[in-house]
Design a binder for these strands. Sequence first.
DNA 1: TTATGATTATGACAGCGGTCATAGCACATC
DNA 2: GATGTGCTATGACCGCTGTCATAATCATAA
Lengths: 207, 207
Amino acid sequence: MVVADRGPRQRMVFSAAQLLRRGGVAAVGMREVAVQARAPRGSLQHYFPGGKEQVVNEAVAWAGQYAAGQVSRFLAALSEPAPSALFAAMARQWTDELSATGVLAGCPVAAATADSAQTAESTRTNAAEAFACWRRPVAETLTGMGVPPERASALATLMVSALEGAILIARAERSSTALTTVVRELAPLLDGAVERTRGVSKRRYGR
Amino acid sequence: MVVADRGPRQRMVFSAAQLLRRGGVAAVGMREVAVQARAPRGSLQHYFPGGKEQVVNEAVAWAGQYAAGQVSRFLAALSEPAPSALFAAMARQWTDELSATGVLAGCPVAAATADSAQTAESTRTNAAEAFACWRRPVAETLTGMGVPPERASALATLMVSALEGAILIARAERSSTALTTVVRELAPLLDGAVERTRGVSKRRYGR
DNA sequence: TTATGATTATGACAGCGGTCATAGCACATC
DNA sequence: GATGTGCTATGACCGCTGTCATAATCATAA
């Protein structure tokens, strides 16, 4: 979980994301960000003149890009490319953390949304962009697997939604059953969406 | 949205839930709770000797019971009982709020989980119980519609997860498309889970 | 009326946390 | 060496918030 030491600025953004995961925006203390990033406190007002809001916003943006990057990494690691396998890989990251550390921190974007969607416009839009940034590669991957574009986009939304919700339940229960349940139940729906070109398409979905 | 005026205590719990929806645990100010509930500030330490944590916990518990109660109300209002219709009704409550007020407050349980799951054990367990309290009637309703019990429980988890996640995205985007998308995409999966026991399946509902 | 317990009123306190002001340091360029 | 510019250091301020102490008020039963 400790990554990218590219400069103190990056580290501070990363630390903010971690604090966001643990206790939401309120847990992102400016002093704490600096400490955890082993960065000088004086750098805060230098790199983030926008104050706490800016730090949170950058943490959210970073999280969105990180999640997006993970998608392609997951895809590359799949032995048998299928929508359900991608979703399983996305969820596994969370179950792994829970089994490894015993607790499950949340999604930074979710925390920022829950806390600041109505109090900080910039944070709200940043969160929306982060979600979009995350869903995009998911949808693209699905189309690459044979899912029609429009539907791929919708399924990406469903995947992210289900994952976010399952993360919440898993945190509350300190158990990964919600995550595994969601993965298992969604699998047939996801895999059923791939259209076999010049074969019998399994089904069509209209709306 | 203004409900149950059964005494100042209830009103304070309700107010706490509302504040929780807007800005998370940090937005639940004790003084603010009293003001919004039109309750005397002195009553706080009288009714809630456990302090803020107790107030938040009771708000979470109340939310869980409220959500559970809504399920049976939704079921009663369904013209054509089907899993997808129940899910649509659950989601509609949120889309309605967004279209009516222009903004979308979040789920109190989600906010409490995101903010306090790792800092307040009691809040975490309360949230877990609230989720369970919510899923139970959903699962029971599904079995009443003809879904096998084990599967019904899993699908209830999926429904709640997808709904919670979609709420997050909808808040961030200030748009209900995520909610409607999730409802639409999940419909065939949900309805496909009913087992038609010999012919027309209109089974009874669990109590 | 009086007593007793439930409620309300209010002020103070202590801690925290974001922000700002101001100064000090490092280093490159001229 | 002078000078400017990116970074760091530090302390103070101020508003907010949860909590507590203490007392006043009220209702009801004896």
